[in-house]
Amino acid sequence: METGTSRVKRGMAEMQKGGVIMDVMNAEQAKVAEAAGATAVMALERVPSDIRAAGGVARMADPTIVEEVMKVVSIPVMAKARIGHYVEAKVLESLGVDYLDESEVLTPADEVFHIDKHDFTVPFVCGAKDLGEALRRIGEGASMIRTKGEPGTGNIVEAVRHMRHINSQIRKVQNMSKDELYAEAKNLGVAYDLLIGVHENGKLPVVNFAAGGVATPADAALMMHLGADGVFVGSGIFKSDSPEKFARAIVEATTHYNDYKLIAEVSKNLGAPMKGIEISKLTPGERMQDRGW
């Protein structure tokens, strides 16, 4: 009997496919998310849009919040650690969290190194905006990738850019000859073995979810249409006018992402989505997607 194998960790992410993972800040929101059909919840002290508003250093959530959420739902519970913050990740693992997000939404703790994720029994998800980042994170042991997007903006444009970019890079690698792959591994800054896998299979070796800017059912469906395996919704649900309705509608739109009549139906009378931010209004320091290396 073996725990924490790559098959067990990656398999856990496979089971989330076609699903919606929702950010929650307390037990009550976690119950709303579960009842709406979320496949997992991300337990946080503040959702990304609040982190933006508050400024300062954003850290791992208070363990009380994480434990409270774990107590009330039977679906998996995820939590975020700062980039490179080994101890925050170990603390969350010790609480029994089911999945760790080494996340650019929090203030990075290390400007050079990410966490060695092979050193954990619990699997990790990491953000990526291109194939190089995705494969570096997988090399470090990530079992799931998500686009970075631009968290807490309610603006889907960056997640679209990242998903399209990664998929177009994958297609390019797929069509390269074997001798071109050595130089491409150097260009991307990734291990040759991982790149060969992408060349042969035409996809990442782990699932790739969309995250960072999903605010409406149609946003979620668009990301599925672009090839996402599933969707993370951060501020989009509990910063909208009617979280329960938004949560249910986003779940349905993700399952039936190419049934436009159904998406029209679930989009009726939802009330206002979260207020969005135009990306060009962000200062370089406010761009979360540029964190991570």
């Binding site: 009997m1 924490g4 998996p76 029994g96 089911d98 999945y99 619990v122």
Partner: peptide, 14 residues
């Protein structure tokens, strides 16, 4: 019985 073997860290192959 759901989640009968525990949480993700207790997941295994055999």
């Amino acid at each position: 019985s759901r989640n009968a073997f525990g949480r993700q860290r207790e997941s295994f192959e055999t």
